[in-house]
């Protein structure tokens, strides 16, 4: 043990108190009944609860849709921002990233108010709009990052070997930017699958997401069932991170 390892102590304590302990608590609560006895009932209840299952499916659907929308809007935006032919100023990049600096809740409330002013009926459409608006920068930034640092000679080499600009894009630019895309997808998918605030404000609670159910259970002191649902969500998110880890190099990501 060298001396410097003691420097990590504060972080270790922080991690234990705010990450490890809560996780253990979730785990314990999930497998206990209200009296504190061990049970699997919370888990089985979820799988037999048609309401919870359909909410869960809806949450996944919304999260996947939102990730797709962000990717379809974000990739071209990132590509244009990273392309010196179209964009030479760092200001435009900041303008795209700027919304990240403002609290998501405030942005969502403002969006809801805008819908209200223009008389748009709240529903799935407004929910997806708000989510895309909230999470788009998280998709753009990691992709922009990797595209702007990509050695232009790769594209030149492809063109030199006979690839049209379209082929260069699909055969070189896109594959080389995949680490950024994966980062972006994670950054968007993970929070959207667990969100509840956005759907609350942007659909007036008409659409319930998985996060909403967890929140409702916890709020009404159904700690054990809530913890079980949280655990299931954690596992789902855990599985999606596994997908990204088998890429050999995740460089140029957001974090």
């Amino acid at each position: 043990m060298n001396k410097r390892s003691s420097w990590s102590l504060p972080y270790l304590i922080f991690m234990i108190i705010f990450v490890v302990l809560p996780l253990i608590l979730v785990l314990i609560y999930a497998f206990q009944d209200a009296q504190g006895h061990f049970t699997l009932e919370n888990i089985t209840r979820f799988f037999s609860d048609a309401d919870a299952l359909s909410t869960f499916a809806l949450s996944l659907e919304i999260a996947i849709l939102n990730t797709l929308i962000c990717l379809l809007l974000g990739y071209p935006a990132a590509w244009i921002l990273a392309n010196k032919k179209y964009n030479r100023s760092a200001v435009t990049v900041v303008l795209f990233i700027l919304p990240m600096w403002i609290n998501a809740l405030m942005r969502t409330l403002a969006t809801a108010e805008l819908f209200n002013v223009f008389g748009v009926t709240l529903g799935k459409g407004t929910l997806l709009f708000g989510m895309a608006y909230d999470y788009l920068p998280f998709m753009i930034y990691p992709i922009y990052n990797i595209l702007s640092r990509m050695d232009p000679s790769y594209a030149e080499a492809a063109e030199d070997l006979g690839a049209t600009p379209w082929k260069v894009f699909w055969k070189v630019t896109v594959p080389l930017s995949l680490p950024g895309v994966i980062s972006g997808v994670m950054m968007v998918f993970m929070p959207t699958v667990s969100t509840f605030a956005i759907s609350e404000f942007l659909t007036n609670n008409k659409i319930k997401l998985f996060g909403t159910i967890i929140q409702e259970n916890i709020n009404s002191s159904m700690w054990n069932y809530g913890a079980a649902l949280a655990l299931i969500m954690l596992i789902i998110i855990g599985i999606t991170t596994l997908f990204s880890n088998d890429r050999k190099s995740v460089e140029g990501g957001l974090i």
Binding site: D151, S153, A157, P175, L176
Partner: peptide
């Protein structure tokens, strides 16, 4: 062209 830093496609 043979590029100065080769520009071999890493993927």
């Amino acid at each position: 062209t043979v590029f100065q830093r080769y520009a071999l496609f890493p993927h």
